[in-house]
Amino acid sequence: MKKGILITVAIVMSVVLVFAITLLMISQDPIKKAEKETIAIAKESAGLVKATDFYWYNREKTYFSVAGLNESDEEIMVIVAKDGGGKTILNQDEFITEQQAKELTREEKGSIDILEARIGLEGDTPIWEVSYKQENGRLGYYVLTAKSGKWVSDIENI
């Protein structure tokens, strides 16, 4: 009797595990597809040869961005609009890095937990949006220009 119950529980747990893994893989498909398409666009339009980071920015409009190296071994950033496919290409001397954006945010906001940074466009201006958790546990977004690191906006206590 106990052996039968254990076998039944093992079968149910196996089915649940397979379902959970399948659901996770299906949910990742849009991200992987967007990353693959963005890298292909960056290779064609900006000479990307090695992708190092992929970003998905979603505010008023959605942008997919890829950072990496071009044929000259220079760091570039290619920002692609989801709708219309418009491209913005930045060379290494034209933007601050993700790490620099996080450091500038930490300097301004003090004791916070940085969650992630995403690059996108606000109008025609490339911006970094750095999400963070405040000491009170609430979320915030610190937005700065990607070209100079100047403050654009800050949304707190979400």
Rank of each mutant, 00 (worst) to 15 (best):
L6T: 13
L6C: 10
A10V: 10
M13P: 06
S14Y: 05
V15K: 05
L17V: 15
L17H: 09
T22W: 08
Q28L: 15
Q28E: 15
I31A: 11
E35K: 14
E35I: 00
E35A: 09
E35H: 10
E37A: 11
E37I: 04
I39G: 06
I39S: 01
A42T: 03
A42Y: 01
K43D: 09
A46T: 02
L48E: 01
V49W: 07
K50H: 12
F54Y: 15
F54L: 10
F54W: 13
W56I: 04
N58M: 11
R59V: 00
E60K: 11
K61Y: 09
T62P: 01
T62N: 03
F64A: 07
F64I: 03
A67W: 01
L69T: 08
L69D: 01
N70I: 03
N70D: 15
S72Y: 10
E75I: 11
I76A: 03
I76R: 03
V78W: 03
V78S: 00
I79R: 00
D83H: 13
G85N: 07
G85W: 02
G85C: 04
K87E: 07
I96P: 00
E103C: 03
E107Q: 13
I112C: 08
D113G: 04
I119H: 01
G120C: 07
G120D: 05
E122T: 01
T125R: 12
T125Y: 04
P126F: 05
I127H: 02
E129S: 10
Y132W: 13
K133Q: 14
K133F: 02
K133V: 14
Q134H: 06
N136I: 10
N136L: 08
R138Y: 15
L139K: 05
Y142A: 05
V143G: 06
V143K: 04
L144D: 02
T145G: 09
A146R: 01
A146G: 14
A146I: 03
